[in-house]
Design a protein around this nucleic acid. Structure first.
Length: 934
RNA sequence: GCCCGAGUGGUGGAAUUGGUAGACACGCAAGACUUAAAAUCUUGUGACCAUCUGGUCGUGCGGGUUCAAGUCCCGCCUCGGGUACCA
């Protein structure tokens, strides 16, 4: 073998790595650990396209780099294998989702007879350094046994606000038995107070009901986002623009008995925890927004003639004297009660109208101001004045208290509302004109406000809160937008809950045994509307049910992915979710790479579960992912053909203006560059067999191009398999990195790949003469060492700042320079192979072996950069005149400013540019630049 | 609307702290080898002007700071992401 044969080399080394378990990793206290993780994929039937491996390649480069630098690197891979598509497929074909899932991972044939290559085989071809002995699948009972265990841990925990952490529910029960709940400060909506006697007297059912209010996962009747088409409940982050993210089906509000996770207890810690994370600002912002912390006061207004109060939550309690009316959401429970007879008709009409309006309508209808007066009055807590109570659909029942104290001078929506209904607008800001709009900045001085007069906003907020507190009508309060997360799905293909019901009370199984997903005859809801699991008879379950029935819901997609990074450290442990020694060694993930679309889902829930597990003493860290990189999406480069509407002929791109055309997507595999292969196209579909064309003058058919999401339906999917076959995995790896910064979105374009392959061929040639392997043992020259060490420095610096694209150019430059020097010295090439091996591991292993090494290149050490080789005697000074670079002058590096200036002015060219004019100023920056101003 | 991020040749992109804009690669053009093609190699390639030397312009647009701005500041435009009557 003499020419670079990527197929043979890659096959050989992939086999070698697998047989020798090269990437198997164990705890090793001699070495520092490094944990590199990719977001694990959902194994879909369509397999990997070139966008998927982008992040995996980057993390693999980093993992291999860290390994060469003496770290013990954990770099696992697995599958998030519960999910909707497999279930949808099961509904259509009757095939068990487990079967589909296995086929999608391991390869095989699907029900329609399509060949599925399988994720694992696709991944293997790219040469990743995954430790496959650690593979996990969230749908495997060995794995979800522990997802269920974590659920039980969460179920058996409550949030103690005094210690600011989760604690076992047992402790709480002890307290209840001793002294009731009088001294308990917990994350709960439950406000009733009970004594120890009351607690003891209660039935089990009653006690259970009360405890539900404290548990970190609890059952409650909640308004949920119900998607009838999917037959399931969706989390807020699974809905985009009012329709389901998957499928785009309408979503409606429905009340259902659901498991929820008390994530709100962690709102503040989730917010504060962001500060110490090395994540992009945009992801941090998204999470901050989602948590939505706002500080203010809760104030209750009494209503004239009623005992009820209206609770409001202003963030600006300092504007309390600017209140000129109140607005309730049309759905507010008090509306029916306080509305006067004369207003009743109008109010009810308005309520009905508001009901029919969808969220979307309300949103798009910002300009229309609407509302109705209820006829009732609230009492201002300080002035005692009567103020009108209105309803308006700009106030949402679902947010805060569903009521606002309207301060038109300080809030634009209140201002608009007051103007529209001609309600008084009181100005409480000193020397501020509010005749055109409200004043929302916080830099005014408060006036017309009794005891707040003359104060700054900041001081007035403080004082107003303490006065409210004194009067017992309000207090300072912090509110979050974050809601508790609904944790039930009316689905089959998910983790079953380790829960059964007896007399309608939920119980979790005491014994630590997995509750396996039972076989059912159909993957659809029952006629009664119960979830599919209701179809399983009691004996179909692998566990003896002591109660009346099992929980029929399953867990959501994010359950398994919220803790998988912990399981990787000890994936086969059957006694524990992972041994504490191993967790202690590996700790949290040092580098996590994945898509930004998981910002509010997976990335938030994982942080939430980590904090619970930390509080309960199961793990020693609170944050799962220290450094996060969000890789950009690789978009598809679709190809279009144009068909003449009149004749049905296909018109080439350059001629299409002369015709009335409709465009179609065609398979990108029919193209060579932008030129369509007419024969392939004709064979594609029957109706094209006799297609006629209008060509360019050159006689070719040129396709249009368009950047789309990569998807089957646009025929623009490029699989890594084809490219690996044609160019090799090493080329693909380097090329995907070469494409641009990892975080950036970029269209896929295969045109540049030949350049990268050319680079590897040139590398190969450095080691060969006349197609025979030949290297020299001579000592390298200064120039050769300079090239090598310049590259070592650049690669190290770039990889460490996660710049994965620039090293590829540096390697190219290095190989180009060595080629120009005709360098085949093993002392140089050996080190080049080591630094290149994270990018192109196969070719490097092969050449490494040819150099006479018997151990894999993965056991090598990343070379030390030696600055001595980069010391220059001269520097080429760019000489600028008035900031414009004109020419360069090479000067000894050790000259000082004055000497440099002298040398420059000796130069003929300098004189020519100055034309005898005396320079006004000369700037000399040694080892940088010379600028002459004249 | 608000909050982030981005805008550089025909294309992907480089320029890490203000200091030679366009590295590296694709594409294109010319040439060498070849019966021919592929592969490979050599040369050129931001735009405009000029016979070369060279000059003018040039990093989305308009200003500004500076000896010097792709990089910093102010105001806009476009695109992408997030969020949405949040009280």
């Amino acid at each position: 073998m003499s020419l670079y044969n990527h197929k043979e080399i890659e096959k050989k080394w992939q086999k070698y790595w697998a047989e020798n378990k090269t990437f198997k990793v164990e705890e090793n206290r001699e070495k520092p650990k490094f944990y590199v993780l990719d977001m694990f994929p959902y194994p879909s039937g369509s397999g990997l396209h070139v966008g998927h491996p982008l992040g995996y390649i980057a993390s693999d480069v980093f993992a291999r780099y860290k390994n060469l630098n003496g770290y013990n690197v954990l770099h696992p891979m697995g599958y998030d294998s519960f999910g909707l598509p497999a279930e949808q497929y099961a509904i259509q074909t009757g095939q068990h989702p487990a079967t589909t899932t296995t086929t999608n991972i391991e390869g095989g044939v699907d029900k329609e007879g399509n060949k599925i290559s399988g994720y694992r085989k696709q991944l293997d071809k790219i040469g990743f350094s995954f430790d496959w002995d650690r593979e996990i699948r969230t749908s495997s009972p060995d794995y979800y046994k522990w997802t269920q265990w974590i659920f039980k841990e969460i179920y058996n925990a409550w949030y103690n606000k005094k210690t600011d952490k989760a604690e076992p529910i047992k402790n709480l029960i002890n307290v209840f038995e001793k002294e009731g709940n009088i001294n308990v400060s917990a994350a709960t909506e439950y406000e009733e107070v009970f004594s120890s006697n009351q607690w003891k007297e209660w039935s089990e059912k009653q006690q259970n009901k009360v405890l539900m209010n404290y548990r970190l996962t609890y059952l409650s009747d909640t308004w949920v986002n119900w998607c009838p088409e999917l037959g399931t409940v969706l989390a807020n982050d699974e809905i985009k623009d009012g329709v389901s993210e998957r499928g785009g089906y309408p979503v409606e509000q429905k009340k259902m008995r659901q498991w929820s996770m008390r994530i709100t207890a962690y709102a503040d810690r989730l917010l504060r925890g962001l500060e110490e994370l090395d994540w992009s600002d945009s992801i941090k912002d998204i999470q901050k927004n989602w948590i939505g912390k706002s500080k203010g006061a809760s104030i209750s207004f009494s209503i004239a003639g009623f005992s009820e109060k209206i609770e409001v939550f202003p963030t600006r309690p300092d504007t309390i004297f600017g209140v000129s009316f109140m607005v309730l959401a049309p759905e507010h429970p008090l509306v029916d009660k306080i509305t006067t007879k004369s207003q009743k008709h109008k109010v009810e009409e308005y309520q009905l109208k508001a009901l029919t309006k969808s969220e979307r309508d309300r949103l798009s209808d910002v300009k229309t101001i609407s509302g109705e007066f209820t006829g009732a009055y609230a009492i201002h807590p300080f002035s005692g004045k009567k103020i009108q109570i209105w309803i308006g659909d700009y106030v949402l029942a679902s947010y805060g208290t569903g009521a606002v104290m309207a301060v038109p001078c300080g809030d634009q929506r209140d201002w608009d509302f007051a103007k529209h209904f001609q309600i008084e607008i009181k100005n409480i800001f000193k020397e501020i004109n509010i005749s055109e709009s409200a004043y929302i900045d916080k830099d005014a001085t408060i006036v017309n406000s009794d005891f707040l007069d003359g104060l700054s906003v900041k001081k007035a907020i403080k004082l107003s809160i303490s006065e409210l507190q004194n009067k017992g009508i309000g207090k300072g309060k912090t509110q979050y937008k974050l809601r508790d997360a609904v944790f039930s799905r009316q689905r089959y293909w998910g983790e079953p809950f380790p829960v059964y019901y007896k007399d309608d009370i939920p119980y979790v199984f005491e014994e630590n045994k997995v509750v396996e997903l039972p076989e059912i005859n159909k993957y659809l809801p029952t006629e009664k509307g119960d979830p599919p699991l209701a179809r399983a008879e009691k004996e179909k379950w692998n566990i003896s049910i002591f109660g009346d029935r099992m929980e029929y819901n399953t867990m959501p997609g994010w359950a398994g992915s919220s803790w998988y990074f912990i399981r990787y450290v000890d994936p086969k442990n059957s006694e524990d979710f992972a041994s504490s020694e191993k967790i202690d060694y590996w700790q949290n993930v040092d580098l996590y790479i994945g898509g930004a679309e998981h910002a509010t889902g997976h990335l938030l829930y994982s942080r939430f579960w980590s904090k619970i597990l930390f509080d309960l003493g199961h793990i020693p860290f609170q944050e799962p992912f220290q450094k996060l990189i969000n890789q950009g999406m690789i978009q598809g480069n679709s190809a279009l053909v144009y068909r003449d509407k009149n004749t049905g002929r296909f018109i080439s791109k350059g001629k299409k203006e002369k015709y009335q055309v409709v465009s179609f997507h065609v398979d990108i595999n029919f193209l060579n560059g932008d030129i369509l292969d007419i024969e392939k196209f004709k064979k594609w579909r029957k109706e094209y067999n006799n297609a006629e064309f209008v060509f360019e003058d050159s006689g070719e058919y040129i396709c249009g191009r368009e950047i789309d999401k990569m998807s089957k339906s646009k025929y623009n999917v490029q699989t890594p398999d084809d490219l690996v076959e044609k160019y090799g995995a090493d080329t693909l790896r380097c090329y995907e990195m070469f494409l641009g910064p990892l975080e950036q979105h970029k269209p896929w374009d295969v045109q540049g790949i030949t350049g990268v392959q050319g680079f590897l061929k040139k590398l190969w040639k450095l080691f060969h003469k006349e197609e025979v392997f030949m290297t020299s043992n001579e000592n390298p020259t200064k120039e050769e060492l300079k090239t090598l060490h310049k590259t070592i420095k650049k690669i190290k610096e770039d990889i460490e700042r996660y710049s994965f694209n620039t090293p590829v150019s540096a390697f190219m430059i290095c190989v180009n320079e060595l080629t120009a020097m005709k360098c085949n010295k093993s002392k140089i090439l050996k080190e080049l192979l080591i630094i290149l091996s994270p990018y192109a591991p196969h070719i490097c292993e092969e050449l490494w072996e040819k150099l006479g090494n018997t151990k894999s290149i993965t056991t090598a050490t990343f070379p030390e950069f030696n600055p001595e080789y980069l010391i220059e005697n001269n520097y080429k000074y760019p000489v600028s005149f008035n900031g414009k670079m004109r020419f360069t002058v090479e000067l000894p590096i050790n000259l000082n400013k004055e000497e440099i200036e002298k040398e420059i002015f000796k130069n003929e060219k300098t004189k020519a540019y100055l034309k005898g004019v005396e320079p006004k100023r000369v700037i000399v920056v040694p080892k940088k630049i010379v600028n002459i101003v004249y």
